[in-house]
Amino acid sequence: MDKDKLAVLAVSESGFIFDPVTGHSYTANATGLKILELLKAGKEPDEIRSVLLDEYDSTEDEVSVDVNDFIENLKKYFLI
């Protein structure tokens, strides 16, 4: 994970994300923002999973899959 890339992202509370490097903008929802925050804070996927499980009403399987999927998405956009 390239923390540097993550670090430069401008993230607003309303879900708007700006990458000054590429100039592209993105939108994310609350859950997505949460994961992004945790990633920027340097947390590993397992830790992120536990946090989400604590906070949200879901199952371990679902959260697992979704977190991985989200990270894949970030990779797709070259944000990680």
Binding site: H24, Y26, A30, D57, E62, D66
Partner: peptide
Amino acid sequence: MKKEYIKPYIRKQT
């Protein structure tokens, strides 16, 4: 009370 879970997403603005 846990919050309702909505799957995370991120989408590029095109």
